[in-house]
Design a protein around this nucleic acid. Sequence first.
DNA 1: TTGAAAGCGCTAACAA
DNA 2: TTGTTAGCGCTTTCAA
Lengths: 377, 377
Amino acid sequence: MPVTIRDVARASGVHISTVSRTFSAPHLVNPETRVRVLACAEDLGYRPNRAARALITGRTHNIGLIIADIANPFFPPLIKAAESQARHRDYHVFVADTNEDAAAEEELVHALAKQVDGVLLCSPRMSNSLIEQLSREVPLVVVNRQLAGLPCVLMDVGQGARSAIEHLAGLGHREIALLGGPRGSWTSRELRRAAGVAARAAGADLTVLGPNPPTEHGGLAQAEQVRRAGVTAVLAYNDLMAIGLLEGLDALGVAVPGEVSVVGVDDISLSRLTRPKLTTVATPTAAAGRTAVDMLLQQDTDLPRTGRASGAAAVAVGVRRTTAQVMLQTELVIRDSTGPGPYAGRERSGATAAGPGPHRRADPGGPRVAAGDVVAS
Amino acid sequence: MPVTIRDVARASGVHISTVSRTFSAPHLVNPETRVRVLACAEDLGYRPNRAARALITGRTHNIGLIIADIANPFFPPLIKAAESQARHRDYHVFVADTNEDAAAEEELVHALAKQVDGVLLCSPRMSNSLIEQLSREVPLVVVNRQLAGLPCVLMDVGQGARSAIEHLAGLGHREIALLGGPRGSWTSRELRRAAGVAARAAGADLTVLGPNPPTEHGGLAQAEQVRRAGVTAVLAYNDLMAIGLLEGLDALGVAVPGEVSVVGVDDISLSRLTRPKLTTVATPTAAAGRTAVDMLLQQDTDLPRTGRASGAAAVAVGVRRTTAQVMLQTELVIRDSTGPGPYAGRERSGATAAGPGPHRRADPGGPRVAAGDVVAS
DNA sequence: TTGAAAGCGCTAACAA
DNA sequence: TTGTTAGCGCTTTCAA
């Protein structure tokens, strides 16, 4: 029933190889023949079978997207952008969810390897060494994790943490808590590192609470701890956790930002809808998805694959992989969940709230562009 | 570089067809040979190439998931459940986003047809006739749309609308608005129909506002209209729109539920986080994803495909397709966005707020099971 | 510019 | 129980 290249050949009175050329190397075919073949193909509704094509060319024109948790609102915009970008380049996208499980990640890379030209690993929980090993099986681009020798798309959460801490210190907070993310998260480590440095510079104390699951519940569960820690401000691993904390503090009768200020990370769309609206470090999720796909396909273009006509020669030359690492800017978006702390108005060292840095008073709904900087290649 | 069936055959000293059987018909192979082959395969890290296999068997072991808008929080739980269910059955999932565009839907079905064993069409915007036509190209299961002769997974939003209207009428509301969804949405029509009937039965007036885009902005934009319409209660097409309306009313200084009560549909996780918390008709999104995948794969099992060994005979017999339509229950979850209306406490006809029907006082976080009823086959 | 032929990795008749 | 063979739909040498 499905129409094959042979049907088109028969209908247009040429050999199948001519039909093949019409689609994959049109310039090698007589214009008149070409239009005739194209017309027949159109008529019959012919579409080349990509899988059959892949068998020879070694390119599937598919990519894989491995996601820690599709239901986490951080990811859908990334998935959407990646899928859109891929499709513009005539690639289809497999999406798989790992439930934050490292073993599932590994299995999925294996399972998809033969069906795709590359895989996007988003916020992986695997060890670096395992990721490196898997990258020998199939081209990989990693999002939210830095690995030497592998193409990575990173968001500058370090800068974000710095801005957040400076913002809080500028408001007069000296006792600040950091709600850590899940174990194995690069973002969480980075946040912790940068927040620690910034707190020291601002003369504030930083208490680290965690690790925590990167969910609303993770934040909710820490509300009690936050109160007991006696801090007046909290930077959470992500918005979901910050929102959970908002809930938890509300249940405990702790006023935000009256008694405690809260800052999230990500700027998921939800964060404009809570009461109070959440101050947060916006991460350019969609840009990350687009960029990661571009890097993967770029690599795919550079890197000849196992097709009959490729391989050996290029490998002998010593395939030069593109291993650029891109760091995308983040930006502090100040809303209503942060307010004056106990030291508000007093003199202190360090940057002031109005000082330099990528701050921004929340503007209701305007577009935001994130610039990408190559930090290594 | 990638290891093929031939490498395994060589390593284990058998013919490739024996290796093939070891994987696709193990009972036809001598147990000793089998373990040897399996050991070699394991050693070499062999995985059968599914695309090559599909060329012969006619089954790709892939399915397609076509989604109106991945970033709409209604869909991620559905995607997650569908992907998980598919993977349990050893299927991989292509995900594609159409941006609510009917033409993109059609193109995507064509594009994916050859690479998948079936497609899940989620909340399609295409016409019925086009969907029917496409279903001749590739097996389809449709979610949130009823089509004679096609397997469908529906959520009983009609019942949900009824419950919502009865709830509002029971609270003493007589002037109710319905915020309609996008054009071409089965759910929107169904909601409107059922809400109309229920309102009449309860002696209430129903004003329909719309169509609207199924987004927060769609609701926000209608806030002014809602106020002018002089209604005291609103049922919105979905939670996103309801939340937008909440925002809009807040900006206008209209108290919820003091002056206007608001009910959403879907129970996305966000709806527990707004202030006030949203009363809403919970739809079993994850169950819908799972069920739809099951129906698709069931159909795939019944329906022989274009492999060499299949086709003709079965087609001649007149392939009996599974066209069951499943209707999943919805449930009204009462939270804080609905309250007494101007006629509260007065006598009236119709069901009371405490009357029968699938109501539920919000219980904080307990699991909910949705039962599926076959309404046709 | 086109056709002939080989073969990508695999499965499924058929024979032994 | 295993090997032989043909061929799924397609691309790509090679020759004409």
